[in-house]
């Protein structure tokens, strides 16, 4: 699968852009938190597209955001 680029994203409609990002993010997130992958991906898709692209290129950034999202999600579910 070829890397997702900002120009590829820009060529797609806004809703499609999130879909493209989600399809790339999901497998990476699934490898970290298989049970929560769908919800974590949904949370991360609320982030700006440019930052999501950066996360796809930077595993460390993605990992940090995923851990952040898991903490938020667990706090939310504990309520």
């Amino acid at each position: 699968q070829e890397p997702l680029t900002s120009s590829m994203l820009a060529a797609a409609p806004p809703q499609e852009q999130k879909q493209l990002l989600g399809e790339r993010l999901y497998p990476l997130i699934h490898s970290m938190h298989s049970a929560l992958a769908g919800k974590i991906t949904g949370m991360l898709l609320e982030i700006d597209n440019s930052e999501l692209l950066h996360m796809l290129e930077s595993p460390e950034s993605l990992h940090a955001k995923v851990e952040e999202a898991v903490a938020v999600l667990q706090a939310h579910q504990a309520k």
């Binding site: 879909q19 769908g38 949904g42 949370m43 999600l73 939310h76």
Partner: peptide, 26 residues
């Protein structure tokens, strides 16, 4: 008393068109 956040966050499923926050409104 506040039930508005029960469905948060929207869940992403591969291969399923993403509706994101739009699907909160019926």
């Amino acid at each position: 008393s506040n039930g508005s956040s029960i469905s948060w966050p929207p869940e992403f499923h591969p291969g399923v068109p993403w509706k994101g926050l739009q699907n909160i409104d019926p």
